[in-house]
Design a protein around this nucleic acid. Sequence first.
DNA 1: AAAGCGGGGAG
DNA 2: CTCCCAGCTTT
Length: 341
Amino acid sequence: MFALSFGSDLNHWFLQHQREMPWRKTKDPYKIWVSEVMLQQTQVDTVIPYYLRFCERFPTIEALARAELEEVLALWKGLGYYRRAENLHKGVKKIVRELHGRFPTSLKEIAQIPGIGDYTAGAILSIAFNQPVAAVDGNVMRIMARQFAIDEDIGSTKSKRLFERLVLEHMEGEPSVYNQALMELGALICTPRSPKCSECPVQSTCKAYAQGNTEAYPVKARKEKPVEEVYTALVLKRGEAYYLEKRPENGLLANLWGFPLLDESLYERLCALGQPLNPVRHVFTHKRWRLLPVVVEYTGKNEERLRAILNIEPVKFFAMDDIQRLPIGTAFLKIISQIDR
DNA sequence: AAAGCGGGGAG
DNA sequence: CTCCCAGCTTT
């Protein structure tokens, strides 16, 4: 086989080496959409079981549009970035309401759907409808940065446009194949560390390989270390039920359920009323939580004493069976795992 | 342009 | 530990 060009070499490699994935068995734009949203900032192996459960429960746009957000979030539990689920839910409802349930085929219309940005729009248009548009994700930026020795910070808006242009300039064959080939190459060969250049189908055109400094790309601005926040987590117990509150619509773990998080300074006073559990650590992209859980029985004298400390009026206590069905963030699940035994 | 938003895997 | 991952929305 002659080396023809970047695009065709890439496509040939992909057709021989692509991995099997559930969403590669369909051209249904809805299912491609679900997979792309789940795959935002999330690795393939993590997504697969979530994707299969989700598509079984919500096989169509209509099925998802009929569901309550609460159930959608419950299926998303543990996957993170819960706004994705909320936007997906808003998106299908919008399509049912405004487009008679038909997934739009123009970039202009697709861009109006909540949760679909430049990447996801490009991915759906190219994979489901085979339209020649770019779909630039982290993999693609890494590959192109190495191919062309791009020194621009990949986090900047400017470099994003540059990568889209490079992708389109070198596109060949079926857009569906080409775009997925880029992602697959980034996942299997052109990895962030220790890229497998000896197996790379586009090694001959790679500028960074020629320079011998593939790992110098892509250039990425340094991020701040996440700051730690410490909270007292109130595990209020009444009989065999526990108090959980729904978190605000905006902010961290929005719309999920959890234990009340109180100021660290209340820890000692609450410990005097109940029993501490093991501290829980949880890391987000931009902050770290250290939660100090205290189990307090909501009975008798404690009720009075709690009222003096807090201004919460605990209403909803949940049995453990009900807790399992609620959308709850992993940080709180770590506490629950200590009491559910 | 920058910040906020999860959770897990790899090394 | 650190870095990264099939990013988007809001400010």
